[in-house]
Design a protein around this nucleic acid. Sequence first.
DNA 1: GTCGGGTACTTTTTT
DNA 2: AGTACCCGAC
Length: 723
Amino acid sequence: MTNRLDELNPAQRAAVTAGDGPVLILAGAGSGKTRVITYRIAYLLEERKLAPRQLLAVTFTNKAAAEMKERLRALLGNSAGELWISTFHSACARILRQEIEVLGYGRNFTVFDEGDAATTIHWALESAGASGGLGVGALRTRIDQAKNEGLGPAELAARDPSGEGALTAEIYRLYQSRLKSLNALDFGDLLMLVHQLFTTRPEVLARWQARFNYVLVDEYQDTNRVQYLLLQALARASGNLCVVGDEDQSIYRWRGADIRNILEFERDFPNALVFKLEQNYRSTKTILAAAHSVIANNLERKEKRLWTENEAGEQIVHYTGVTERDEADFIAREIGRLGQEGFRPAEMVVFYRTNAQSRVIEEALVRRRVPYYVVGGVRFYERREVKDLLAYLRLIANPADALSLERLTAVPPRGVGARTLEVLGAAAAREGVSLFAAMGRAEAESAIALRIARQVSALHQWLSALIQNAAQMKVRELLDEIVARSGFFAYLDSLPDGADRREGVTELLSAAAGFDQEHGPGGLTDFLERVALVSDSDQVAQAGGSAALMTLHTCKGLEYPVVFIAGMEEGLFPHSRSQGAGEVEEERRLLYVGMTRARRLLYLTNTLSREIYGTRQEARPSRFLREIDPTLIRRFAPAGRNEPLRVPARGEIHVDYSDSQLPPAGDGDFGVGSRVAHPTFGAGVVRKREGRGEGAKAWIQFERAGTKLLVLKYAQLKPIADS
DNA sequence: GTCGGGTACTTTTTT
DNA sequence: AGTACCCGAC
């Protein structure tokens, strides 16, 4: 250990060797945070003689947890095995697998994803007969927020007695009781129910307090209220709570994260030791200075400044394309060019604000033959065919999961339709049994045709047998039987996109096989839990020969030699739905996180026009671009069509027309940005297009007459050539 | 009961 | 643009 400490700078060493009690480590981007956490754990185990099982370390992603475990195994050898290093959600799930029965759930509970939750809220909305007001999405957000704050339906109703508040609370109540009858938990429940246990069952809390002598939390700036309460409860006995974070990197306010948790840690834990890690080992001086000039505009932060001994490095490149296609092609071209300068594709990454931006960039990369992969977006386990198959597994693990039962009954189609299920559901409710149990008695149900009832009971028998045997079977074996017996492939082949779907199934089968290798038979519940709690960034490949594409939210905790940030435009970044003062600050932090991922080269790109929801809109440069010290930026673009790339003079405005999808000026197509003349309104500029063909309209900003929406067919517009 | 067309809406970000 | 959903027609 002693030699190991030599590898740390003084601030890092102080943090690693801090004594008992609350500890706050303010770790700037690239300041060696992961190393500090890992070494601190090693220090606690070796020098302070903590047993591995006495320590709980909470990370933000499963991948971060796995990497940390790996490093510790290298430092400590096998004793790392008993360590609890996991995400908040995984840790809570694990606690609940042991403790949940006192709350009236079974230990084999299912973890619902977003879609399952939405379906259930839809059900609640219908059974409440509520119409108008809030939609499923809004309700889901509100309920989730309540759970993030640790509030139940009654508390929510008390806090917001308005009509909307009452409706939300009522739906929340119905939703919650439905979840319970399905023996299912949503993401919020994982945290909330542990909180409930800890507050209502002192003996349970005491047990876990005794178990965990030391709690360590990474990315503390992104903890929400319940997480805060959980930590406080757990650490109350020992007082040993060590949190690591950086308020400048707090980017999950919208999902309940409370930046005050970190800003007020010293108030909450008055005797806390505080350590600041301000030396950055990752980025060039230029990148760091640019990032600082952006984040310095935030008010809700403590002033601090990262510094580095790294070289100044290259200027930041700012590129402007006419359309998103230009932007994408520039990125693809640059990645290609850098490839020839010795950067591997895997060292380069493209970040964007919204998932929708990835498509155009992907197309450009395909055209330029750049290997790439997308992190996040449509999640693998939420793909239709995968969810269809998982429904079988979920039912086997948890026969109360009627949602999965309904799903698997319909896919592949076996003549048992919605009406049959309705009858069975009514029978189940009448007799107070589960839907699955009611299926076993279908043949006694007179309202169901005998032919169909036989189908139902055959399905029931088969599934019952699988439930019986599941404990002895590997997940892969279960899946193989399900696929074979249900005729899943034959069903897929009957679909127009069957070939693509087969791929998803194959991938799921190999994921299951991989899981079985670690677990052996009977791991079904663990497998499903892992599936439910995978995070987007878990898919980030550490090696491989492809450039990565991901949202700015997903990029947290990563670093790359070359970073592109696309879509630096008002309305996109900062996003039009995040225009409140606090929200813009969060967007700014998001950019800060993105910029500080870069080691050597940073590119920022924007466009003059972008297609949003099918209409082309004028795009203005992001305010954040102006916040960067201009001396750190080099604008990089060709001056006009058919001219080679060149570095423009300072202050010159540059636009890339080289791969523009806009029609050439003056061809009468009235593209966004083109100048037009109207017989009565005079000269103007096309600002936005709507519709196509006969009904195509354009918003035109006239020099004298203001902005008008005109139908192109009747407007008698004439193009004016740009000067 | 299913198909198809028209319409309205969307995802901003995710465990 | 894409899709989810609703209503009317076969």
